[in-house]
Design a protein around this nucleic acid. Structure first.
Lengths: 338, 338
DNA sequence: ACCGGTTGGGTAATCGATTACCCGAGTTTC
DNA sequence: GAAACTCGGGTAATCGATTACCCAACCGGT
């Protein structure tokens, strides 16, 4: 395999320089030459070697993206959004999964850097353990964190305003009559996990409702089911459960109904994310919608602006979410029906 | 950015040849030189440029994978399996989505070829429209089709034995007492869609049950819901519905229950795939499990054997699925409880 | 007829890593 | 003691596309 520009040039009876110029159009050639080169290229089925091009102009037309896992629908949604966003700019995406492991994540970053990606978008799997690899990468190429971030603020970030989102959720259930609330989330290993818990606590404290101790596990449906069981076993249910994502919420609803409680009559449940799952489950889930398209667009835009190792202070762009009221909570004026 | 092997060589006071040899270990150098080079490389933070390496040895250590969409959990599952399979061989994966469009698919293949991937794994989105691009790619690099394939058999394929799978499903519902059955699948745009319908029809014909006209739409939950409505509106329900995948089945179950029918008492429902969804839904879904790990392993193994444009006849490897009986069908001895 | 300017094409350097090839020093062998 | 070998190191070619640089031809103006 491999018809090169030399072959094209020879077939067209011109030099490689002329062939290159005819094909790229970056300098004028006579119509005669242009024609002959075009024909030769077509006949030979010439396809430029992107590797050689990348070596020569020190740019690959590629950006790398690293997410914790593609099994999680939130991440696949955001990957698709980034892909769409990149589509028209001609750059394409190298997608990697860190499998929720900082070691794998560091290896993935290494190989992406070795392949000389022009930039990186990453959702670091661990707020602490991911720090060195992410900072090191940020020193070498433009890098933007999306959704999750590392502590210490050494790199730009785009994500949702978790604090605002949790305030929406808490205010909503209280407006619906809840006098006691609990938070079902994830262990505090990621920035999202921490911010959502603290956002919940702050919002709840502000309103003065009774707050039960939070339930912290994983961002999974299984943990939601488990958390529901824990609540049932505790004997006394709160009026509302605010969840850190939709999968937890779906599991929780199932668990509570299995235990004979009605949602939302006995307990209101609100999720977070609103990616696919929420409309599909039964009953449809009230949730806080992440502005995934805007986040992706903003991340790509920002990536175009940052330079590697730029001493400029890191930016943090938090985009406001909105509440989507469906049927696991009592409707009040505040929410947008869907 | 960019400390090269020349910088390392200079810092160590040796030639680039020695530096390269010391680092790769492909030819002996004196311990003295090895030591000095290693120290210099470490101090400068040298990281070899994979682009230059790829250009020089005409191999990128990368394989490309193209799937119709990463929103579909079946494809993300199979991507993860391939990723795991590749992990230890040191090659990494460039993942692309064709977004169910043959045009996008062709473009993605072009850019993967331009980037000189060492091989391709593809699940072609359209059994007819994908033909030219796939055959063209297969002529240039080793290529294996996984799950879906193009008509005409011009390239190797690894997938599930759909015929056997549908036979399992049909025999199972009949053993459970069904006297009439219907198939809920997808329009016949992919090989999977066709094989599952024909597998269903053959199995049903063999047993002689009454067969209602098939319902063909998309491989989505929404279509499952819609198909359920169609059945309800038709006035008379069959005893069993065999679905082309789990998402359709989940939607269908929801729809039927919403319409007041009991599953499996009034209607038995069986899905296909068994990737995540099935255990999560309510009630847990009886389904035919695709051997995803084996399929991925086999695809990677095969990829290592095929050569580009090899005139050897194309292989087709169909792996047997197994039935997993849960609660949307009546248990009989045949199935493996889960 | 001569000169500055423009136009289009060709030659060779460049990107960075690897390695074919060559060379000198030291060792072995008859 | 000289031929034959081994060993380790350096020089430069190589992969393929782009482009800096150079050069010949031609143009119009004086």
């Amino acid at each position: 395999m491999g018809v090169t520009i030399h072959d094209v040039a020879r077939a067209a009876g011109v030099s490689v320089a002329s062939a290159s110029r005819a094909l790229s159009g970056r300098r004028k050639v006579t119509p005669e030459v242009a024609e002959r080169v075009a024909r030769a290229a077509a006949e030979l089925g010439y396809q430029p070697n992107a590797v050689a091009k990348a070596l020569r102009d020190q740019t690959t037309g590629t950006i790398g993206m690293v997410v914790p896992g593609i099994g999680n629908p939130f991440f696949t949604t955001i990957v698709e959004a980034v892909e769409r966003e990149l589509q028209n700019s001609g750059t394409d995406l190298l997608l990697c999964s860190s499998q929720y492991s900082p070691q794998v994540e560091a290896r993935r970053l290494e190989t992406l850097l070795a392949r000389r990606v022009d930039g990186l978008i990453i959702s670091p799997c661990d707020i602490e353990a991911s720090v060195p690899a992410v900072l090191d990468a940020a020193r070498r190429v433009p890098l933007v964190q999306l959704d999750r971030y590392i502590e210490g603020g050494g790199a730009d970030w785009v994500g949702v305003d978790d604090e605002a989102g949790l305030a929406l959720a808490v205010d909503h259930v209280i407006a619906g009559g809840a006098r006691s609330v609990v938070f079902a989330g994830s262990r505090l290993v990621s920035s999202s996990a921490r911010l959502r818990l603290s956002g919940f606590e702050r919002a709840a404290a502000r309103t003065g409702v009774e707050v039960l101790p939070p339930l912290l596990g994983e961002f999974t449906l299984e943990w939601g089911v488990e958390a529901g069981r824990v609540l049932l076993d505790a004997g006394r249910l709160p009026d509302a459960v605010v969840c850190a994502n939709d999968e937890i919420a779906v599991g929780l609803v199932r668990s509570l109904r299995f235990g004979g409680r009605r949602v939302p009559e006995d307990v209101a449940v609100v999720g977070f994310d609103d990616v696919g799952h929420a409309t599909m489950c039964d009953p449809p889930l009230s949730t806080v919608r992440q502005p995934v398209e805007e986040m992706a667009a903003e991340a790509v835009r920002l990536l175009g602006q940052v330079k590697a190792g730029d001493p400029r202070p890191a930016q943090r762009i938090a985009i406001a979410p909105r509440l989507v009221v469906r049927q696991t909570s009592r409707p009040v004026a505040a929410g947008v029906p869907d």
